[in-house]
Nucleic acid binder design. Structure first.
Lengths: 268, 268
DNA sequence: TCTTGACTCTCCCGTGGGGGGAGGGTTTGA
DNA sequence: TCAAACCCTCCCCCCACGGGAGAGTCAAGA
């Protein structure tokens, strides 16, 4: 019979841990003195303790270990749990690997550019867009389309966020097709050429840019390089959400806030 | 200005998270209504939020992120933090990899043997051993040595754990050199041929065996195979701690409990 | 037999990053 | 004017213990 401290030293675990395992019913002492509460462990319990340690190192939670230690768990069932655990562990390993590569990407990004690009991967929020779509000669020409949208929406436009969607990917090489619109939470009825459609929810890379439109070309440049380096691939039209629009007359360019969303998927 | 719910949807985080970050001082709303407590977020805060998300994905804790977001953190300092973080991440990755391999080892162990071997890696507990060392013709012959130890220790032997140490590794191929002893917490004075020396603390693989000595050969077989497969290498004399000794007359072999310790290191 | 110091007990709080829910106030559109 | 949708704070929960307070217990030496 060993006192808790002896047993802990023998096994290489802390006294606190043994008390916790007792409380959780994972490893009860061989005897507990009813009067003093002192725990006494028997040598034979060391094998159970060691099995617990092994299962912990394999990454099982204490509650799972408790089940695995129950009598009546066959070798086949144990195998099943282990295979499940292996799949989880493989996922974790992949994640940790991605994380490491993300860290390295950011280190090299800072080395090159002086600071990192805050690109976040996420799903776009669901919603409806009231928009006009047209072929354009230049990007600036999109300004021509917004009055049509605002003309039909009137007051209701205030509740939405202005958006531009650019179809300038691989499909349309030489021409610029743009949509000017406003994102709303619910659909509304509008007349041609304005349409109201559900904005597809897509997995995208998102970047928030603060500053005027003149810097967009440079930002897109870095952004697409970032996507390339992250092992991703553009798979849809880019969106620009104009979250805040400054007053150009006063020249407070810094008060422009635009979220750029580029739909992406993992490169095959 | 966005209400908390809107802002959360926009950013793809939960309302709870935004409130928590506010409480932690990580991301304060642009305005908080003093009367109602309602939080209002500005579009410009989305870039800070995204930076937080990026740093979180890189594995930084919120407290570290708070420091990294302070003004006055230069690109060089950020680089330093990232390199530190990379080192941590590499360690984690190694650990997760080891864990995965341990899971796979156990799966194959069960497939082959019907059940896994509960081998635990640990440091041996510190202590002193009162022992006699000698060359033996057979393993059983060690029984001859114990009376010398017990003769000198007398009553004090009851406080210790009987141990055998086997020098049968690569150094001594053809001969068996064994030590019979008792492990005590403190040194005592003894006369030759009995000695009292500190038991070196070593990193070892430990296995608790329940059953009589006749099964030892088989257990050692599996044990050393396990060590081999785990990518380890034996680098010292093996120890056997007799934690509980059954009554051979009654034949209750199952009440023998022996801990086998094999000093190991990573194979180069 | 007494003391002393090592050991042990239970109970409570803290960790990190929020999630879940109760109970109550606020806003907004119809 | 009323209901639905939002928002607030406050409190408990997760996991696997660690730290410490305050009190009781045990074994060896004087």
């Amino acid at each position: 019979m060993f006192a808790i401290g002896e047993f802990a030293r023998l096994a290489g675990v802390s006294v606190k841990t043994l008390r916790y395992w007792d409380e959780q019913g994972l490893l009860k002492p061989a005897r507990t003195d009813a009067a003093t509460g002192y725990r006494k462990y028997g040598a034979a319990q060391l094998s159970r303790l060691n099995r617990i340690l092994v299962l912990k190192e394999l990454g099982f939670a204490l509650s799972q270990i408790e089940k695995l230690l129950e009598d009546g768990v066959s070798a086949a069932e144990m195998q099943g749990m282990l295979r499940l655990r292996r799949a989880e562990q493989e996922d974790r390993l992949r994640e940790e690997n991605l994380r490491l590569r993300a860290i390295e990407q950011r280190i090299s990004d800072i080395s090159r550019e002086g600071e990192g690009l805050d690109v976040v991967l996420k799903e776009t929020a669901p919603g409806y867009v009231v928009r006009v779509k047209d072929r354009l000669e230049s990007y600036e020409e999109i300004a021509r389309l917004y009055p049509l949208v605002y003309g039909q929406l009137g007051m209701r436009a205030a509740a939405g966020i202005p958006i531009a969607v650019w179809h300038c990917g691989a499909e349309q090489k030489d021409e610029i097709v743009g949509e000017a619109g406003v994102v709303l939470e619910e659909a509304v009825a509008v007349a041609a050429p304005v349409e109201c459609v559900a904005l597809p929810v897509v997995h995208c890379a998102s970047l928030v840019h603060r500053g005027s439109f003149e810097q967009f070309a440079g930002v897109y440049n870095r952004f697409s390089r970032w996507i390339e380096e992250a092992g991703l691939e553009i798979n849809g039209p880019c969106r620009e959400l104009y979250l805040k629009i400054g007053n150009p007359v006063r020249g407070d360019d810094e008060s422009y806030v635009t979220e750029m969303q580029i739909p992406v998927e993992k490169r095959a």
